[in-house]
């Protein structure tokens, strides 16, 4: 309890987190002692080239994977002690995901897709419907609610996916290369959606990307390389997608 008091501001605490795969000589160290603190309401970009360990870190943050060493606390709660079942339940209530591929279920309408996490969280049907419509509204895709993913553009589908992520009101939104499968213009619309969402709801957002242009839209960049944090600083010339859509900067 004392720890929770002291770190009231801090949503995520990683201390010397390591993750290795395999055994003996074939051991691969994906993470080598990552220490990181993310405050509630921050918008952070986790950046690094492929193989830097950012996907592993994202899997650990999202409770898909367990660290082999170190401590992970979320909102003051020790995540490494949870059972797989508890993890799934915790994930369902507190953490939301936006993936690189547009991971909408193809045979469900936009609305049904958005409602899905809430139905897994056993929320009442009318609350579910209400939150889903609100989230679709927030992302500007309310008019698409009865369409199937195949009837939307990539950008629209990704915004539905973001709506799905935020509808249950999570503490943390984890986005893994959210613009990776989109062209630049749709990508910018999606980044704009993230920024507006951040401003309006104050939800904590972690963007995992290898794209510096995407990273510039966050308020803070944590750079990873070879399983370690090599840089952690606020973004000084932050790009605001809504106001100055820039065709320059970054390579994808």
């Amino acid at each position: 309890m004392a720890i929770k008091q002291a770190e009231a501001q801090s949503l995520i605490e990683l201390r010397e987190v390591s993750r290795s795969y395999g055994e003996g000589e074939a051991t691969v160290h994906a993470l080598r002692g990552v220490t990181l603190s993310i405050k509630s309401g921050e918008m952070v970009a986790l950046m690094g080239p492929s193989g830097s360990g950012k996907s592993t870190l994202m899997n650990i943050l999202g409770l898909f994977d367990r660290p082999t060493g170190g401590a992970y606390t979320f909102g003051g709660q020790d995540m490494t002690r949870l059972s797989a079942r508890q993890q799934a339940s915790f994930r369902g209530r507190r953490i939301a995901f936006v993936f690189q591929g547009i991971h909408l279920l193809p045979r469900l309408t936009a609305l049904a897709n958005v409602e899905l996490p809430m139905s897994y969280a056993r929320m009442a049907a009318n609350t579910r419907r209400e939150s889903a419509l609100k989230a679709l509204e927030l992302l500007g895709v309310a008019h698409l609610k009865d369409r199937y993913p195949s009837q939307m553009s990539g950008g629209q589908a990704q915004r539905v996916a973001i709506a799905r992520a935020i509808a249950p009101g999570p503490d943390l939104l984890l986005a893994d290369e959210p613009t990776g499968a989109l062209d630049r213009k749709s990508g910018e619309l999606v980044l704009q959606a993230f920024q507006e969402l951040h401003e309006e709801t104050g939800v904590t957002i972690v963007l995992v990307t290898h794209d510096a242009f995407v990273g510039q839209h966050a308020a803070r960049i944590v750079a990873l390389e070879d399983g370690q944090v090599i840089g952690d600083q606020p973004v000084t010339d932050r790009l605001m997608a809504a106001r100055q859509p820039s065709p320059t900067g970054g390579q994808s």
Binding site: A88, S89, R91, L105
Partner: peptide, 16 residues
Amino acid sequence: FREIGIRKALGARDGD
């Protein structure tokens, strides 16, 4: 596979 992964990422339990 993919659908199952998505569902789990969205909070589906093993039992679900």
